[in-house]
Every structure is written in C-alpha cells, then in structure tokens.
C-alpha cells in the first residue's frame, strides 16, 4: 500500500496549507517515517513523487535534519540531552544507566528492536535535567536508576499495547 492509499486525506490537507508543495516536505516525511519505521530509499522516492520534488532534494533534507531517520530505529527512540547544562546535572550518569539497562551503546538499537538510544543537543527543558525524550515525549528529573526502570517499564507496556507509538512524534502526549 502506498502512502497515497493509506494517508491520502492527511497528505492532501497538509499540501493545501502551503503556496508551494515543497514546504510540506518535513510533514510528509514524518508520515512516511511512521508508516515504514525509517526513511528508506524507496520511502524517500515516494515522498519526492508526492511533492513533485527531485529525489536528490529529498535525500538532502533527510540527511540534514536529526529527527529524520534513514537507518532503522526501534519502536521507541530515546534521546538523552547531553548538552550544557544537562551534562553537569547527571546526563552522563543517565546515558550510562540506559546503556547498561538496555545492553547497548548510544546510537544503537536493542536486539529486540524496541529501543534506540541517542545522545542529542539541548531539548529546551533544562529545568528538568537530566532529561530525555521518548518518541518526543519529555521525561525529566531522571536522576536515579529506579526512575529509569519505571520509565522503561511504562514504555514497554505502551509498545506491547501499541499505544500511540510514533517515532515522528505525531502522537505525542498532550
């Protein structure tokens, strides 16, 4: 099934917002990323066709923005801020805890395909340091291994129930 078949109305509504189709590129890429789990070459070509853009232009955009994933990621992408001030407020400890609990290093995905762990720059939630985003939902004050356990168990339940899982953040929690 193509994106046009599965998300035609949503894509048309987005295209209608802009004087030029190409402005819809990030929004359509977010849809493709959720539908396919990553922005594969085929997905990128499909988006280019929807937007009447060249394939090169879409590849360039995918390569530029950090929230567009051309490699396969887990069901939930965990993005830990390791920037200032988090770096001095427990971010390194948080990364360490996650690495040991998940059994992976940063920038890797667990063997079961559930979690990808990444280090990212400032998330504009410095008052909640150390902070991470899980599929772009904020989780702050993660200063103990117990809090990390609690979060991972909540996320595992959500994945098991397929409860609003969107790596693009299209179903972020209000």
């Amino acid at each position: 099934m193509s994106l046009r078949q599965t998300h035609g109305a949503e894509i048309d509504a987005i295209l209608a917002l802009y004087p030029h189709k190409r402005s819809a590129i990030l929004a359509v890429l977010y849809i493709a990323q959720d539908a396919y789990g990553q922005l594969s070459d085929a997905a990128i070509r499909e988006v280019a066709e929807i937007l009447d853009a060249t394939v090169t232009d879409v590849f360039e955009v995918v390569g530029f923005y950090t929230l567009l994933y051309d490699d396969k990621v887990g069901k939930v992408v965990l993005q830990v801020c390791d920037d200032v001030p988090c770096a001095f407020c427990g971010a390194e400890e948080l990364v360490g805890t996650l690495e040991s609990k998940l059994g992976i290093k940063s920038e890797e995905t667990t063997a079961d395909g559930l979690f990808t762990l990444q280090r990212v720059k400032c998330l504009a939630a410095c008052n909640r340091a150390p902070v991470l985003q899980a599929n772009l939902d904020y989780h702050g004050e993660l200063s103990t291994p117990e809090k990390v356990d609690e979060l991972l168990s909540q996320l595992r339940t959500r994945i098991a129930n397929n409860d609003n899982i969107s790596i693009s953040g299209r179903k972020a929690t209000l």
């Binding site: 917002l17 190409r22 990030l26 853009a53 955009v61 923005y65």
Partner: peptide, 27 residues
C-alpha cells in the same frame, strides 16, 4: 495561522535558515 514543525536543527532558529526550512529545503 499554520503550525509548521521543524525536524531537529538549531540553525533553523536563524531567521533566514528558518525561511529556507519552511520552503522545504535544508536549513
């Protein structure tokens, strides 16, 4: 009023990079 979501790039806070990004290009 249209809400336009970026996709992770500090540079897009620079006003002309923001405009490029809004036009669907790299920032």
């Amino acid at each position: 009023i249209i809400v336009h979501r970026g996709a992770g790039a500090y540079i897009c806070g620079e006003e002309t990079a923001l405009l490029e990004s809004l036009e669907g290009k790299v920032g």
